[in-house]
């Protein structure tokens, strides 16, 4: 089997920008906003999310012929919960401090609509290998948006990037950027910018 056939490459790259889950469907923004005040935590969260999406896509896709249509939602949720439990245990084992800081948000990957959305839309209908690329693409697309939000928040809110001070000595931190409203404003502005480029965010009533 080819490692990355043309078709898989298309699935993979479409999820990153053209069908980006956050811009396209406004999915899964809960955890997106909660952890983005520190770039490092965001990266760990993204890694966890990519892992969970890929693993749940693989599991759902491998078992898709055994899942009865009527109970497929609950079956998918259970498989996703298994993947997220693995992420949580790995974090607790290797990155205990970060896992303490992220707290409940790791568990909340379960209800992140992106994971569920990919399982329902793609993995239920395709074989494991394309599903793997689909999950990876969706995860990376999501991570890029998270980092775009996280980097300005940490720079303006703490005057640091990845913990290293980059602003001058007399920099006064914008406390609002660390607080929840900062995340809402950042995402609002980001959607504004993306919309101005002619890409329509979300399915709106208008």
């Amino acid at each position: 089997m080819q490692i990355l056939s043309a078709e898989n490459a298309k699935v993979f790259s479409e999820n990153i920008w053209k069908e980006n889950p956050i811009f396209r469907q406004i999915l899964g923004i809960c955890s997106c906003l909660a952890v983005t005040n520190l770039v490092f935590n965001t990266m760990i969260m993204c890694a966890g999310l990519i892992f969970a999406t890929v693993m749940s896509n693989l599991l759902v896709s491998a078992l898709r012929n055994y899942i009865a249509g009527r109970i497929r939602m609950i079956a998918q949720v259970v498989l996703i919960a298994v993947s997220v439990t693995v992420v949580d245990l790995l974090l607790k084992a290797f990155l205990y401090d970060v896992s303490k800081q992220l707290g409940a948000y790791v568990g909340l990957i379960i209800t992140n609509c992106i994971v569920m959305g990919r399982a329902e839309v793609f993995a239920m209908k395709n074989s494991p290998w394309p599903s793997f690329w689909d999950g990876l693409g969706a995860g990376i697309g999501y991570s890029i948006v998270l980092l775009i939000i996280a980097i300005p928040r940490e720079i303006l809110g703490f005057g640091t990037l990845m913990g290293y001070p980059i602003m001058s000595q007399d920099w006064i931190s914008w406390n609002i950027m660390i607080m929840p409203p900062g995340a809402f404003f950042m995402l609002g502005i980001l959607i504004w910018i993306v919309n101005s480029t002619g890409k329509k965010v979300g399915h709106d009533e208008k």
């Binding site: 409203p181 609002g188 979300g202 009533e205």
Partner: peptide, 23 residues
């Protein structure tokens, strides 16, 4: 509302202001 901000964009900004009020 500026056309590019309509819908979800403005909703996020207003949520931000609401969060500020609640804080």
């Amino acid at each position: 509302v500026p056309p590019a901000l309509e819908g979800i964009g403005i909703t996020m900004i207003i949520t931000g202001i609401m969060a500020l009020a609640f804080s």
